[in-house]
Structure formats: structure tokens, C-alpha cells
Design a binder for these strands. Structure first.
Lengths: 261, 261
DNA sequence: AGATGTGAACCAATTCACAGCA
DNA sequence: TGCTGTGAATTGGTTCACATCT
């Protein structure tokens, strides 16, 4: 039997931003306030900015491919769907990579952003749950080109195990493994990032096993709130939620129309 | 040939929040500041709150199904992965639906949230681009139960046209139609919400056609910045972006580890 | 000249702490 | 007594406007 109290126990999640958590865990470091203040100028990039850097990176990559050597903040901002002030403030957190009176060198800037985001490194990723969504993720072209390498695909359905799926853009395939192999796959592949694309009911169990095996960042597509230990980053993408937010605004539009009439 | 100027022209996007835009468009209404202030107390729910209501709705639905009649803010917050203060502030924007000293009636609250989100209405949706992702979206169970009805599936690949896909949870199927039929499908289905799951290159064209056919809310999975006229809501879900944000934090963790060592 | 980089002002969101009610 | 609902304080993010540099 469920009770409210029991249910309440089951979840305590920090959904993102482990900065404070990490600071708290750092043992006996008195200079934390100072070092954080230093962070803000030299390393600590605002979360909102981090969330936009991938967009700038993609747009800049297109510009470089199109052979454009220089952009102004105005142009880059327009192509990224933000205001130029916001763009300049964002880039200022990385350093002074522009030239006054001229603009930004696209090649140089795209590299600086890539470095800041860690895209110059190799990130082994495992994907758990190979339904339509898992499939879509596995052969999503955008991963390989940005340093993400699919080192493992796992599914609970025995009929799916053994299937070979194209992962990455250059025709490599990865074989679907059984759930039992989860720990092996994570450890052998050296994965620190895990993607959960299972049904909601299975998500927490998978999450626990991933973390136990060494994963420290999780992207969760299952419509469930995940509980993890501190130090593990969890990001959530919920398809239904996104539609519901749209529906809310849609409803407001209709209400407005009625009020006006 | 591309020039920076040309490229810069191609995109100006308001990514969300058409409040100010709408206010600006409202013709000759001098009381706008006042009416907005009124909005904030009576109807205007903060965007951050709206984004969390779907989570509360899902968790509450589970509680109701589990036969739990009452929850405290503490319990509901824990199960939703937020703090209790945040939860109470969020709910306070909807009205006073709790009982001091007791908590919230789950059945009553779930209905109030559903009403606020417009989930008690019927939202016809079209999905464009039936690759793996489009497939996953089409037969995602969470839609039907929340008032979303898939009235159209469209794909540019002629070999895919005619395929019947399970959409919604009760085994109904919807047939994939050709791109030419886009306008017909949108208008006949009465769709106001469109989902774009095409490759990046096709996204803007599809977006324009959807908007021209009457769609006013778009959920975009293509890694491209969309330009739309004011009054159209665009939300973006970018799989690569999410992973890149995780990679950033992951890199930071490793940097920290090195500093400590 | 012309565009960046940035302090200052502004606005939104979160957290605190407690008054008010069942 | 216990939990909601909410002003007040704080933190984080955006916008403005201009000093600064090529």
C-alpha cells in the first residue's frame, strides 16, 4: 500500500547546477567565497550563457563552412535568435575574442567556444532503451561531429538484442546489448554520460545502475523525476511537457481573442 | 555566394514569450501597463512556473491513481524535484487551492492544473518528418492522455507515404501523407500546433507553410533557428545542445579533480 | 567611424521567514 | 500544532548606454 509519506521519500532531485553542492562537499576549503568570486570572472560561466553557447557554435560552424571569415555581434545574434547585447555579454564571459570596429573571427571564435564546451574532447556515451527514440538518438548525425561517441546501446527486450544500429555519421554500427551487460558496457567503454530513453517505470533503476557503474551525467527522456546522489548531473527532456507549455500559451491566445470580441 | 550581410538577414527569432510582442501589437490600448499589472495578479503566470506545472500534473496524477487523497507541499515538492517554497509559490499563482495545516487535495489540484494548462481541451497536432524521431513522437503514449490528438503525419519521402502508424494509446492509426498535402491536413484537422522533426535544412520551409496554413505554435526538433512572424510561439528541443551542456559540466568536474590533485 | 566589452539599471525568479488560518 | 500563502530579501539574468579600442 502506498502512503503519501512513503511516496514523498522516493524523490529528492537536484535537477542541475551542482556548483553549490560541489562547493559544500569540498573539504575544509576556507577560501571558497574568494575562489568563487574568482571563478565568476575567470571560469564560472552563467548557466544561461552555457545553454546558448551550443547555438552560437552551430551557427558559427555554418558560417565557417560558408567561407565567411568575420561576423559582427549584430549579425551573429540575428542568426542565433538572440539580441546583440545578450550575445556580447555571453561572449565576454569567455574572454575578449573580438576586435573592436571589426567583429569576431569566425574560425577563432568557433574554436574557443568548442574548447569551452569541451567539444574538443572525446565523450563516450551509452544509450539505454532502444525504442524509436533511442534509435533516433543513436543515429543522430549531430553527435559524432561534436565529440560524442556512442559506445553502447542497451535494451531490455531480448528480441532487440544483437541488432546492429548505425551510430555516428560514418557508417559505423553498434550492437544492441542486453541489460545485464550495462555495467560491462559502461566500464569498458569508459562512458561518463548516459542517455535514458526507456519507459518511465524503468528509468530510476537504470539511472541507479548507470551511476553505480561510473556515469556522472545523465540525459533523461523518460517522463519521470530521477533521484541521484550529489555530484551527478541530470538533465531532463520531456516531450509531453514541451507540448503542454505550448498548449498553455495557445489557450491564452484564444482567451485573448474572446476578450477582444 | 554568401556574404555575412546576407546571412545576417536570414534570421530574427523571438524564441518564446510573446507577451510584450502581443502587447505591442494590440492597437491603441493605452492602459497596457495597467492591464499587464492586472494580468500578473489574475492571469499572468510566470513562465518558469508554467514550465513546472506539467511536472506537478504528472506527479499528482500518479498520486491520484495510487489512491492518495492529500499531499503536503513538502511531499509533492520532493516527488517533483523542487523545493517546497518554490512549489507553494508556483501554486499560489493559480489560486488558494490548499488547506492550511492539512495540504492539498490531489484530485482537486490535478484538475485545477489541467484546466490552467488547457489540458481539458482538445489540441489537434500535426507532425512533419516521420523518421525515427517523428515515429517516436507519433506513438508516444503521453500525448493522448493529455488532450493532444495527432491529426496528421507528413513526410517528404514518397516511399514512406501511405504507411500507417499507431498514434495515441488506443490503437488508432494515422496514415503518413505527402508533403503536398500539408495545407490540407492542417486545415481539415484544425491543427494549431505543429511539430517539426525534419532535417535542419527543411525546417524553415516547413515552418513557413505550417504558419501560412494556420498553425500558431511550433515545437521544433530540427537543429535550426526558425524565423516566424510575431504571434507564433516557437519552442526548440535540441538533442545535441542538451548533451553539450552536460559535457560542459562534465569537463568542469574533471578540471576540478585536477586542481585538487 | 564602427563595433566590442562592460558597469549600471532593470526585471524575473528563487529563497527566506513568518503571519494567518484550519 | 502544522502547513499554507505571501511579503521581503536575495540571487541570477537581461537590457541599456557608453567608454574604449582598432
Amino acid at each position: 500500500m502506498w502512503t503519501a509519506g512513503h511516496f514523498g521519500l522516493c524523490a529528492f532531485v537536484h535537477n542541475y547546477l551542482p556548483w553549490q553542492v560541489l562547493a559544500t562537499l569540498t573539504p575544509g576549503l576556507i577560501s571558497v567565497p574568494l575562489s568563487r568570486a574568482n571563478d565568476v570572472t575567470r571560469r564560472g560561466i552563467p548557466e544561461a550563457t552555457v545553454a546558448r553557447l551550443p547555438i552560437y557554435h552551430r551557427v558559427l560552424t555554418q558560417l565557417v563552412e560558408a567561407g565567411i571569415a568575420t561576423v559582427s555581434s549584430e549579425e551573429l545574434a540575428a542568426a542565433s535568435g538572440v539580441t546583440s547585447a545578450k550575445l556580447r555579454k555571453d561572449l565576454s564571459h569567455l574572454g575578449s575574442y573580438g576586435t573592436r570596429g571589426v567583429g569576431y573571427d569566425t574560425t577563432y571564435l568557433v574554436f574557443q567556444i568548442a574548447r569551452e564546451l569541451g567539444l574538443t574532447l572525446d565523450w563516450p556515451v551509452v544509450i539505454v532503451g532502444i525504442g524509436n527514440l533511442g534509435h533516433a538518438l543513436a543515429n543522430y548525425g549531430g553527435f559524432a561531429s561534436r565529440g560524442f561517441r556512442v559506445v553502447g546501446l542497451l535494451d531490455a527486450d531480448p528480441t532487440r538484442v544483437g541488432e546492429k544500429i548505425a551510430a555516428g555519421r560514418d557508417g559505423e554500427t553498434v550492437e544492441v546489448r542486453a541489460m545485464n551487460d550495462l555495467e560491462t558496457v559502461v566500464i569498458e567503454g569508459g562512458a561518463v554520460i548516459g542517455v535514458i530513453a526507456t519507459p518511465a517505470g524503468a528509468a530510476q533503476g537504470v539511472c541507479d545502475r548507470l551511476v553505480a557503474a561510473g556515469v556522472t551525467s545523465i540525459l533523461n527522456f523518460a517522463p519521470a523525476v530521477l533521484t541521484t546522489s550529489a555530484g551527478v548531473d541530470v538533465r531532463k527532456v520531456d516531450l509531453a511537457t514541451e507540448l503542454q507549455i505550448l498548449a498553455f500559451h495557445e489557450q491564452r491566445k484564444h482567451a485573448d481573442r474572446q476578450v477582444r470580441a
